[in-house]
Design a binder for these strands. Structure first.
Length: 431
RNA sequence: GUGGACGUAGCUCAGCUGGUAGAGCCCCGGAUUGUGAUUCCGGCCGUCGCGGGUUCGAGUCCCGUCGUCCACCCCA
């Protein structure tokens, strides 16, 4: 036996048992976005490495050590997207979409980060992504958050906590960063290894350290909210008002920071405690400078990303089951003539009875065997086409799930009869 | 990248202090030849993750490697 080829580390197959949950998530996502007037935009999975370095930030962990980058045959450096925003912004710029001046977009698909896998964290994972361009005011911030709340609710997920914060403008953040540097510098001796490292790189990150010791020091640190510029303060206050009016509960979390450099002002995160150490289920924020930074006309932007695997894990944990699709009828056929006729009947049913799911017994087998397969398929009815039925121009219908007598049906009335039995309506009678 | 636990049939697992592998489920077939689910009978499937080492002999001990899970880091 030759050696089996294993999947790459941290990537997963979605098997038929899991697919319904994914389809459910994706269907609800489409419905909710559509309800808010957001349009789908599909962007490539690979982009120039440069794009991510410039948008996410050279010194973020994602860019420094988690990107799947490679040289293609032409010597260009290509990267598998680690997140969606950069590509969406690029698409909006390179296709001239910003001439619309206001855009509400969404996309969905795989992202890649070369991290060490653990609970809720994979090397290939999937995100649902929302982005809005050209809106300056806090109303869009509120809309995006309300939209995410509705999506989560529609999925049946409760008990999620919404955290919000404002990072202010780049200028006000710089001021705050200095204050923070001074504060933590004064406590440097008490800082752990990671925090000392962050002190040099990005002191903001010390704020969300999980180390209880650090949390104690963090508790005394100056608050970002206090060093916000006036406009950012007003923006944030207005957002809070919108959320209250919409009945969305939230916590202002002054230590909430993001791992990507491009965020300004509003940042938020939906968290759960049901997923081990990966608490973020959906997170995002405003990125007013990013479009210009990537060469587009100066346009404000804001967006969020939702981790599909994490949502699926939550659905699973909360027992929100999604049923596997089963056939309505399974065709049991005897002999070559039965198989020939059955094939035609099945096509006729699919043609004329909308949404009917018909599974044909393929590969022969005794009637007994075929009935076993019919049962295992989960079908509601077995449709029997034996020598006797063929010669009489009928089919036998046997319920596999209910105690009821097997019935006979003339071929010409089969479409209608099945439509009635299954609550589907045929467009016209079959031939 | 760092640390810990683990890796035996498709799945869940058993295999005491080393003597060359087992159960249940699943799957396939059968129980007088046109009817499934229960029951009974039978069957398939493993170079015990991979590679080295110790030993007369290793699934069982040692080393390496790959992978899974968990935590840190980071993040959706």
């Amino acid at each position: 036996m030759s050696k089996i080829i294993e999947p790459l580390r941290g990537v997963h197959d979605v098997l038929p048992a899991q697919a319904p949950a994914w389809q459910f998530l994706e269907r609800v996502t489409r419905e909710v976005f559509s309800a808010y007037g957001y349009e789908e935009c599909r962007v490539p999975i690979i982009e120039q490495t440069h794009l991510f370095k410039r948008s996410i930030g050279d010194f973020t962990d994602i860019v420094e050590k988690e990107m799947f980058s490679f040289l293609d045959q032409g010597g260009d450096s290509i990267t598998l997207r680690p997140e969606a925003t950069a590509g969406m912004v690029r698409a909006v710029i390179s296709n001239g979409l910003l001439r619309e001046s206001r855009l509400r977009l969404w996309c969905m698909g795989p992202m890649f980060r070369r991290e060490r896998p653990q609970a809720g964290r994979f090397r290939q994972f999937h995100q649902i992504d929302a982005e809005a361009f050209g809106f300056e005011g806090p109303d869009i911030d509120a809309e995006l958050i309300v939209l995410s709340a509705r999506l989560l609710r529609r999925l049946g997920l409760s008990r999620l906590k919404l955290l919000i914060n404002s990072l202010g403008t780049p200028a006000s953040r710089l001021v705050y960063r200095e204050q923070l540097g001074l504060y933590f510098g004064a406590h440097e001796a008490a800082l752990d290894e990671d925090s000392k490292r962050r002190l040099k790189g990005n002191p903001l990150r010390i704020l969300d350290s999980k180390n209880p010791e650090m949390q104690r020091i963090v508790a005394g640190a100056p608050l970002m909210i206090d060093s916000l510029d006036t406009e950012s303060k007003e923006h944030f206050a207005a957002l809070c008002a919108y959320l209250r009016d919409a009945g969305i509960e939230y916590d202002v979390e002054p230590h909430l920071v993001r791992g990507l450099d491009y965020y300004t002002r509003t940042v938020f995160e939906w968290t759960t405690d049901a997923l081990g150490s990966q608490s973020a289920v959906c997170a995002g924020g405003r990125y007013d400078g990013l479009v210009a930074q990537l060469g587009g006309a100066d346009t404000p932007g804001i967006g969020w990303a939702m981790g599909q695997e994490r949502i699926i894990m939550l659905l699973d944990k909360l027992g929100i089951a999604t049923m596997r699709e089963r056939p309505h009828v399974y065709l049991v056929m005897a002999g070559t003539s039965g198989e020939g006729l059955g094939f035609k009947i099945a096509e006729n049913l699919r043609e004329n009875v909308p949404n009917l799911r018909v599974q044909l017994n393929l590969g022969g087998g005794s009637l007994k065997t075929q009935f076993k397969r019919a049962d295992k398929s989960g079908a509601e009815f077995a449709l029997v086409l034996g020598e006797d039925e063929i010669s009489r121009g009928i089919v036998a219908l046997k319920s596999l799930r209910r105690e009821q007598a097997q019935e006979e049906c003339v071929l010409a009335q089969l479409n209608e009869r099945l439509g009635v039995l299954l609550g589907l309506s045929p467009t016209r009678s079959g031939s």
